[in-house]
Design a protein around this nucleic acid. Structure first.
Lengths: 205, 205
DNA sequence: ACCTGAACACCGTTCAAGT
DNA sequence: ACCTGAACACCGTTCAAGT
């Protein structure tokens, strides 16, 4: 049975979920697919091209079926949450996405919808585009962090312990007061809080 | 002349500025320092430990001498801009910082000051800590992107050309309208816009 | 205490040669 | 058209042995 491009892509996404982005190598992928090292290079010219296809696959259908009865800021919020969910659907999905620098069709659809919503709300094209950047940096940064903690062997418990040890009541009274308020890994409402802040800022403009 | 820990660290920061984070290898660092491969491992137990020391060095004096006469939100803004500047001071500085998961003393000082400012403004410890996360994800995400474009051979011109080619008037009217408004690499006012949105959101709460 | 020399176990990528 | 086999030019890390 010959390999197809789709099989290589599906194998890569499966391997990603198993071993994470740091364990994802072209050699390991070939071994999972039961072929020799060079074989995948017939289907994808480089690892980077494969990573791009993986990111594009993750973003499928991101903008479909948005409820047009919702006010613009709720549709913005919905899209941002969909982006987070799409990236969470695969281990280290946010890092895969953030490592891609070519314009992916599905990422363009996301940007187009977002900018359109803001322009529809009366923003200039400049403000609309810059606001989308603000939202997207937040979503991606938050999700990277969330997945990093989730990918640790102990789910981040050790990281919290190290932070606790590093805090000194004399120098860090405020961080100590907030220590129990920081969920590790991050949660849905931690995400929603920051998104709400950004959208409140946009509405107040 | 024997090597010191500081010489290894300074050599690593210098090499980073020359070749970027993707070109920064322990072997190349040893070669720059005029020693054999294993030599740096006497001063730093691992590459990760060296990256942590590099991040810590970049954040030196971040919170010093904040003008206490400024209102809390302007001090927040000042600190966020200082973080950006500190990361911009070395090539790929934002990616170095974002790859560190241990509590760095200088990063703790940043968090402590930020949370303290927000609690001083009447926020709960939870809201204060979560708001700092929101700001910091934005700063780091923005700066990573800025440095990625700046690190490209042509300063990002080719990336813009590829984006332009990928846009289709029928599907992306809003992105096309905004195309000339997106600075590549990102600029100071592009950064300030998003920071202003977040701070406006925080003040409106 | 600090470094060398050499090895181990990996990488991404290329490409003539096979089928 | 699609893959193998083998190589090239790299990695991070370890560690006995040297000074």
């Amino acid at each position: 049975m010959r390999l197809t491009r789709d099989q290589v892509l599906a194998g890569a996404l499966g391997l990603l979920d198993e071993v994470g982005i740091d364990g994802l190598s072209m050699r390991r992928l070939a071994s999972v697919l039961g072929v020799q090292n060079g074989a995948t290079y017939w289907h994808f010219p480089s690892k980077q091209a494969l990573l791009e296809a993986m990111a594009e696959a993750m973003l499928a259908d991101l903008t479909l079926g948005l409820d047009e009865r919702l006010p613009w800021y709720e549709r913005i919020s919905e899209l941002a949450q969909r982006l987070r969910s799409a990236l969470l659907a695969h281990r280290d999905g946010a890092r895969i996405f953030s490592g891609v620098f070519v314009p992916l069709p599905n990422a363009l659809a996301y940007g187009e919808t977002m900018i359109g919503l803001l322009r529809g709300a009366g923003r200039s094209s400049r403000d609309a585009a810059w606001a989308v950047d603000t939202i997207t940096y937040y979503v991606v940064g938050h999700t990277i962090e969330e997945q990093l903690a989730a990918g640790l062997p102990d789910g981040g418990r050790d990281a919290v312990a190290r932070l606790t040890d590093a805090l000194d009541p004399a120098h860090h009274p405020n961080m100590l007061a907030a220590l129990d308020d920081i969920p590790v890994p991050h949660t849905e409402d931690h995400f929603a809080y920051g998104l709400g802040v950004i959208i409140a800022g946009l509405r107040s403009a």
